[in-house]
């Protein structure tokens, strides 16, 4: 069995940081989805790692599995929405969706 928590932690940090940064600065809906995918991948890793470190491997893994599926649902719906938004508004710029606020 291998223990490699610390080097993988760097990956967690990088994925989450870059993913969130990507979401924050993007106005393109597809880029936001990509950013979200990156950040969530960091979250999976963090979950599995946490399970490992806390000696609760099975719990961490079973929750990570749930999150993987949930994330896929999110990505699929988000992409479908993106296609629809493109059809309706003619753009993928999220600022163009301000009219949804009211």
């Amino acid at each position: 069995m291998f223990y490699l928590p610390n080097i993988v932690l760097v990956v967690v940090l990088a994925l989450l940081g870059i993913g969130i940064y990507c979401i924050l600065i993007s106005r393109n809906l597809i880029k936001i989805v990509v950013g979200l995918q990156i950040a969530v991948k960091g979250a999976f890793l963090a979950l599995v790692l946490a399970g490992k470190l806390a000696s609760q491997i099975d719990v961490g893994q079973s929750i990570a599995l749930t999150v993987i599926v949930a994330d896929t649902i999110v990505a699929v719906v988000a992409l479908a929405l993106a296609v629809q938004i493109r059809r309706k508004f003619g753009t993928l710029d999220v600022h163009a969706l301000m009219s949804l606020r009211r």
Partner: peptide, 9 residues
């Protein structure tokens, strides 16, 4: 945010 999660783990 990244650091927070890392530290949490």
């Amino acid at each position: 945010a990244g650091v927070l999660v890392t530290v949490l783990v």
